[in-house]
Computed example of a mutant assay.
Amino acid sequence: MSLTLERRETSTAPDAVEVVRRARRAPRVHHRRLVAGLVLALAGAFAVRVLLGDYTVTIPDFVRILGGEQIPGATYIVMESKLPRAVLAVLVGVAFGVGGAIFQTTLRNPLASPDIVGVSLGASAAAVSAIALAGWSGWPVSAAAVLGALGVALLVRAVAGDHGGFRLVLAGIGLAAAMQSVIQYVFTRVDEWDVQLVLRWLTGSVNGVAWTGIGLLAVALAVLLPATAWAARSLAASELGDDAAAGLGVGRARTELLMLLGVLLVAVGVAAAGPVAFVAFLSGPIARALNRGRTTLPAAGLVGAVIVLVGDHVGAYAVADLNLPVGVVTGAFGAPFLLWLLARGPRHGLRGRRAA
């Protein structure tokens, strides 16, 4: 009888091991398929944004233009309008998507996005002040935006202390209101020739950016994204809280570094295109829902890129003879999502980190 039991245990052991392996493999397989699907969706949105619209460009003509051939009318429209807007939309969307997901994941609060806690408005306030009060233009304005975002992030962190959670969100909302007041005051001092430029920093737009600015953003992301991928190896432990992460051997310095990278990603995105509303706020939750409740920074970046691309296309062609900035479109869709999230929060764990 004992021999029979041993045979049964031996025969069932491989089956149990295989079940465990399949269970561990399934999330990875699903994540790969999700990322591949989002890449295809991004490629489709990019093709629509570049090839379609009020001036249609065929694929053979697009390839010829990229090869350097001059096609009257088409070359200028593609290389100076459609293509730079599409490329900038992808880069900005990735920066906002990954940065926003880092905020929400490390702080374990879906409201702790750069839009809500004042980081984006800090960058805008610094940029608008540099334009209107100091008379700056070009890359110094972008540098001021990055410094403004970093300053607000550090101040919010200092006010919230070690508690985080809703205390950090409330501190961010308070500073965001202060930054909005600064922007409104500076707007009254702006020269009439700079009004359009200032409005771009208030709403967010991917229109009118030169290839040099796009190149600078690409270089910044080429540095920040690999650093984020390295620091995000401990992201799953950071989601459990500081105490649990410390018990798993993940120091607080790693979490703080990841937060700093998230701030920098949002800052360079704002410096390039202004505060495109709610992209950082929407991308993380959408990617998490598509990934069956698991955090995924690559998917969040791809979702952000798709949102900005689609939003820019809708803003350009949804209303005849009216070119809306992409920030207006994303804000129109993001505001209801925020209200829905606030309405369902207390019943679905939207409590953030408890104060110690």
Rank of each mutant, 00 (worst) to 15 (best):
T228A: 13
G208H: 03
I183D: 06
A218K: 01
S234V: 07
V182R: 05
I214G: 14
T228Y: 03
G213E: 15
G262E: 02
V268G: 05
D242E: 14
A253Y: 02
A176P: 02
R252A: 10
V223T: 09
D242I: 03
A218N: 06
A231V: 05
L199Y: 07
A220K: 01
A177L: 14
L248C: 06
L235S: 04
D194A: 10
V195Q: 06
A236G: 09
S234C: 02
L221T: 09
A237K: 02
L257I: 08
L202C: 08
V268N: 07
A177Q: 08
V266A: 11
D194Q: 12
D242C: 07
G269E: 08
T188V: 09
V219C: 04
W230I: 13
F187D: 13
L258I: 04
G247V: 06
I183T: 14
N207I: 14
G241A: 09
G249Y: 00
A210T: 15
L221K: 02
E256W: 15
L264C: 11
M259G: 11
A237T: 07
E256L: 12
A237H: 07
T188C: 00
L199P: 04
S234F: 01
A267M: 03
W201H: 12
A218V: 05
G174F: 05
R254M: 00
A222T: 12
G172S: 09
A267V: 09
A246T: 10
S181R: 07
A246D: 07
G249L: 10
Q180D: 12
G204Q: 05
L260D: 00
A245I: 06
A273I: 09
T212I: 11
Q184M: 09
T188H: 12
A273M: 11
F187W: 03
L175W: 14
M259W: 09
L225N: 01
V182Y: 10
G262N: 02
T228G: 10
V250F: 08
V263P: 00
A232W: 05
W201C: 12
L199K: 13
G204S: 11
G241P: 05
A272H: 09
F187I: 11
W201P: 11
A273Y: 01
L224W: 01
E192Y: 11
Q180P: 01
G172E: 08
M179G: 10
V190T: 14
V223F: 04
L260K: 05
L235N: 06
R252M: 10
E239D: 13
T203F: 13
G249E: 06
L258K: 03
A218S: 15
L216V: 15
A220D: 01
R252G: 12
A244C: 01
V219I: 15
I183N: 11
V268Q: 05
Q196G: 10
A232K: 07
V223H: 02
A244I: 12
L264Y: 03
A178F: 15
L261D: 05
S234T: 13
S238H: 11
L216C: 04
S181A: 12
L202Q: 14
L225Q: 03
A231I: 00
T212H: 04
N207R: 11
I173T: 09
D243V: 13
